[in-house]
């Protein structure tokens, strides 16, 4: 554990809590992509199958259980409890265009051709693009509530901080996971446009609204 990794995890945790608070306080899931949340649920479920096979630390186990639990609760809020506020018309990204290539890639490019390892690789690749339905939804509606922007900023920062963690671990421990690093770079790049809008608008007290 190093400071970048810890800050990354805390940023990830903050993102999830911000999203839950937004939904709970406003009693609404408007502007939130249910498809992205389903992809994140797939990511966590696939990646944390190792809860059953290897124990790393109490911290590690608690975080995994929290991530899995909250993402399914988020899906419950979107598709059941606050279904009336869910904007399905604008959540029209075709997720099969992500799942199929990512699944194929996980089969072809992995550390070891073993079932759990392929599933882990699939989760890493899928996570890198799982935010696309959410970003697509914002580009379609042309706006994002400020609280949704905070959520996305925290979620994007998490992987960017992991990149710092991997640079640190490479020099400090000789640790290098090419699959995680490449996927992490892709994931962070996808947020760059959003980061720019966040810094130039949200931080100055304005809401994100794109020209029609």
């Amino acid at each position: 554990m190093n400071i970048f990794r810890l800050c990354g995890d805390m940023s990830h945790l903050a993102a999830i809590i911000i999203l839950l608070l937004k939904m709970w306080k406003t009693r609404s899931v408007a502007g939130i992509s249910g498809k992205s949340q389903i992809l994140f649920a797939t990511v966590f479920t696939a990646r944390y199958l190792d809860l059953f096979t290897s124990f790393i630390s109490i911290y590690n186990t608690c975080m995994k259980v929290f991530f899995i639990g909250t993402v399914y609760f988020t899906i419950y809020l979107i598709y059941m409890k606050f279904k009336a506020t869910y904007d399905s018309n604008h959540d029209s990204f075709r997720v099969e265009f992500l799942i199929v290539p990512v699944g194929g890639l996980a089969f072809l490019v992995n550390h070891e051709f073993a079932p759990l390892e392929i599933i882990w690789t699939f989760s890493i690749y899928l996570e890198s693009v799982a935010i696309l339905p959410q970003l697509f939804m914002i580009s379609k509606t042309g706006e994002a509530e400020t609280i949704t922007s905070h959520y996305l900023f925290a979620l994007g920062s998490y992987r960017a901080l992991y990149l710092c963690n991997w640079i640190y671990r490479y020099y400090a421990e000789g640790f290098f996971d090419l699959i995680a690093v490449v996927a992490g770079v892709v994931q962070t790049i996808l947020y760059c446009d959003f980061f720019y809008l966040y810094i130039t608008k949200v931080m100055k007290g304005k809401k994100i609204s794109l020209p029609a």
């Binding site: 990794r5 995890d9 990830h12 990646r47 190792d50 096979t53 290897s54 790393i56 590690n60 975080m63 995994k64 991530f67 550390h111 070891e112 073993a114 079932p115 759990l116 390892e117 882990w120 992991y162 963690n165 995680a180």
Partner: peptide, 10 residues
């Protein structure tokens, strides 16, 4: 279940 490489990150 096959041998699983340790992935210590989240």
């Amino acid at each position: 279940l096959s041998e699983f490489l340790p992935h210590d990150e989240l």
